[in-house]
Simulated assay, not measured.
Amino acid sequence: MARKRQEDPPKGSPAWMNTFSDLMNLLLCFFVLLFSMSTVDEDKYEQLVASLNSSFSIFSNGGPAIGEGQLISSGVSQLNQLSDYVSDVEYEAEEEDTDEADPMKYIEEQRKVLSEEMYDEITELTEKFNIDNKVDVKIDGQNHYIKLSIGGSVLFDSGVAEIKKEALPILNKVGDILKEYSDCLIKIEGHTDNVPITSNIKYADNMDLSAARAISVWNYLTDKKGLDPSTLEASGRSEYDPIASNSTPEGRAKNRRVEIKIYNELSK
């Protein structure tokens, strides 16, 4: 009697391995999808890559697994903890938008920095030229200019707009300072107190007088000091921008002044 031939075992991997491989592929696709929709923290991303490398051995450059592939190899139950490793896209985008600098805010900060630098430089120059006792230097942080204030009695006699000869050395040194900022907008403003002009045929009122004084300073700085007329403005403010009370002689004396405002390059 002939011996029955033994059947060959089925070729290839066992059937259960195909199912297992499909499951692993689906899990891998699932994580790849999460990565494509999310922004990943760099440190936690490295942990995830290392864990995938330990579990599937598909990331050739992955580092050693953390705790024997703690994120993946522990099973699907770890999915509930995935939020600890992967940040939501919308949350990250919102956080980045919050941290991103506002262009207008940046420009405002740069204006402030430039104004502070100009203030320090001009203060040093007034001390160097020994006119700090005649020229008051202030910074306007809101409008971004440096203000040089010169008392009216220093520059002019009462009721006139011609610059006194003894004031020319002071104005000459002020012009030297302004030359350092020839590219900046410079505004010259004349100011008076609130006492009306009487018996003056040359100036109708305080507005005329304040404007004439500003123009006198403008003429000196352009003609004698060579400053560019296109960067200088002159105007009269009369009594309408006081810095002290007009009810006392001291306050009125402070209000009679010429102000020179130097705007930084970002405030043109």
Rank of each mutant, 00 (worst) to 15 (best):
Gly190Cys: 06
Ile215Lys: 15
Val195Met: 08
Asn206Lys: 10
Ile197Lys: 10
Leu232His: 09
Asp183Arg: 11
Pro229Ala: 10
Leu209Lys: 02
Lys225Thr: 08
Leu221Pro: 07
Thr222Arg: 06
Tyr203Thr: 08
Thr222Trp: 02
Ser230Ile: 09
Thr198Asn: 09
Asp183His: 10
Asp223Lys: 14
Leu185Lys: 14
Asp193Lys: 03
Lys224Gln: 15
Asn219Cys: 03
Val195Lys: 12
Cys184Pro: 01
Leu227Glu: 08
Ile186Cys: 09
Val217Thr: 06
Ser216Thr: 10
Tyr220Asn: 05
Asp183Leu: 12
Ser235His: 09
Leu185Ser: 14
Leu209Glu: 04
Gly190Leu: 01
Lys187His: 11
Ser210Trp: 01
Leu209Tyr: 00
Leu227Thr: 09
Pro229Asp: 06
Gly226Tyr: 04
Asp205Tyr: 01
Met207Trp: 11
His191Ala: 03
Tyr220Met: 02
Cys184Gln: 13
Ser235Ile: 10
Leu227Cys: 09
Trp218Gln: 13
Asp193Trp: 02
Ser210Phe: 02
Ala212Trp: 01
Arg213Asp: 06
Asp208Tyr: 08
Leu185Arg: 15
Ser235Leu: 11
Trp218His: 15
Ala214Met: 09
Glu233Asn: 12
Asn194Glu: 08
Asn206Gln: 15
Val217Ala: 07
Thr192Val: 00
Pro196Ile: 04
Thr192Arg: 08
Tyr203Phe: 15
Asp183Phe: 10
Asp228Ile: 07
Asn219Trp: 04
Glu189His: 08
Cys184Arg: 12
Leu227Gly: 11
Ala214Glu: 08
Leu209Ala: 04
Ile201Gln: 12
Leu221Asp: 05
Met207Asp: 15
Lys202Cys: 02
Ala212Pro: 00
Asn219Ala: 12
Asn200Val: 02
Val217Ser: 05
Gly190Arg: 05
Glu189Thr: 10
Asp183Ile: 08
Leu221Asn: 08
Lys187Asn: 13
Lys202His: 12
Pro229Met: 07
Ser235Phe: 07
Ala204Lys: 15
Tyr220Val: 05
His191Pro: 03
Asn200Ile: 00
Ala212Arg: 00
Thr231His: 13
Ile197Arg: 12
Val195Ile: 15
Asp223Ser: 14
Ile215Cys: 04
Ala214Gln: 08
Ala204Pro: 00
Lys187Ala: 13
Thr198Glu: 13
Asp208Trp: 00
Val217Leu: 03
Ser216Tyr: 00
Lys202Val: 15
Leu209His: 03
Ala234Lys: 11
Leu232Arg: 12
Trp218Ala: 04
Leu185Ala: 13
Thr192Met: 11
Asp193Met: 04
Asn194Pro: 04
Thr192Gly: 00
Pro229Val: 08
Asn206Trp: 03
Asp208Glu: 14
Ala214Trp: 04
Ser230Trp: 01
Asp193Arg: 07
Ile215Thr: 14
Gly190Val: 07
Pro196Val: 02
Ser230Met: 11
Ala234Ile: 06
His191Met: 01
Gly226Glu: 00
Asn194Phe: 02
